[in-house]
Design a protein around this nucleic acid. Sequence first.
DNA 1: CGTCGGGTTGATAACTTTCAAATTTCGTGG
DNA 2: CCACGAAATTTGAAAGTTATCAACCCGACG
Lengths: 243, 243
Amino acid sequence: MQSVQSPLTRKLGSFVVLSSAELKTLDDLHRRRRNFVAGRDLMHQGQTDQAAYILSDGWVCSYKLMRDGKRQIVDFQIPGDFLGLRSVLFHTADHNIEPITPVTASEVLASDLIDAFASSPRLATAVLWAASRDEAMVVEHLVSIGRRSALERTAHFFLELSARLKLVGLGTVEGYACPLSQYMLADALGLSAVHVNRVLRELREEGLLTFQKGKVTIHDFEKLVDVADFDRTYLDDYGPLLR
Amino acid sequence: MQSVQSPLTRKLGSFVVLSSAELKTLDDLHRRRRNFVAGRDLMHQGQTDQAAYILSDGWVCSYKLMRDGKRQIVDFQIPGDFLGLRSVLFHTADHNIEPITPVTASEVLASDLIDAFASSPRLATAVLWAASRDEAMVVEHLVSIGRRSALERTAHFFLELSARLKLVGLGTVEGYACPLSQYMLADALGLSAVHVNRVLRELREEGLLTFQKGKVTIHDFEKLVDVADFDRTYLDDYGPLLR
DNA sequence: CGTCGGGTTGATAACTTTCAAATTTCGTGG
DNA sequence: CCACGAAATTTGAAAGTTATCAACCCGACG
């Protein structure tokens, strides 16, 4: 009987009411804990037969590398997120995963998932929901990079992160801890690091938000939402999941 | 007993060997045919309780609109593709779907899918694989828009389309029919229509490919792959699916 | 201390958009 | 079969955004 919920439990629990049996099943997925150091890839493109993971502590990023060395970060994962679900299905990873901080994650074999789903269809639905939500986020990143200016895009990024972190108890309306460098931001936003720096300065000078020393402080949530054309229903309230 | 395979059957069949019972099940999903005219949205953002569809004839695009009217096309769907799978799961569509040509599609209810999966787990795997492949494509579009130049991005786009169309018998190494306007291309590639036009001219003048009058002609596949930094294994040969 | 990885700033270059206008294509009705 | 209008394509010129290059600063760390 543990008193502290895992981030995954907390996230799924906010969308589906979980029975104690389901809580136990979720808990059991967290056997096989692994630790990883920052900066050393945890998975890379082309690797076959990787397991999936549930991230319980720390941040990672999923990215792709181009021939010429440029990279595009597809998404950051935070506690409660799955890593490499798609790689399991394909038997081959199509992207890299790099721990940004020291990371604790639970290895999940395909069979674990199948067993868990068999024991609770509601859990299966919840996990599928989580996976679809991840896909919706990738789509939103695509829209950001394709059609938002650097400023709008950056604002949107921090708002999305804020919504996600609040969901697992790692952030408030005021702000949150954010261990990213401006280089990583650049690779995620499709910008150069230099330009990210300028955009951050502008956000700061406009009184919208400050990102300094690993901390994001939101000064004016409403104006930020407006600048970013951020959809409030995007992650918070994705409609009734189970009826 | 039909002599011509549906595009979906053809696509799935190229990755999983399907038994005649499975072929029959797939065929049964194509009850409830619907026709749609070009240009009139088939699904739009916020709509609840949409069915999913299997596209059997024509092209559609999935897109999102911004407040200021800009739009980003997330992907085009061609015969054999699913439409709106994610919308079914969320009970709410998070994007719009517009028929680009007159379209024939089969409506698929959630219950149809569940029944089909129950009758054949292999089919379930195949469909999941198709969904993951779609997600992989969105990721690749993200990379394209984030880190490839307009020329590279456009080249990559046409190569991807080529690979997809070949899979359902609608294209050859030489080229394919492509009913897109330069405006749509622009909305998909995150460029302005004017610039798309210039890029197309450059591709033509470099002897790489021609896109004119609804036809794409590939002049130099190898050089195109090189320019686009296109991964040959990307869609053709995604590793052994079922073992 | 000395170095090294961020972060910051200015100057310049490159790429892409925007605006405007001409040209071509294509569907429709005469 | 032709004429007409709407839509799509094409091109030039100018403006705007973002990248690149080059310094410089700063704090962490051996």
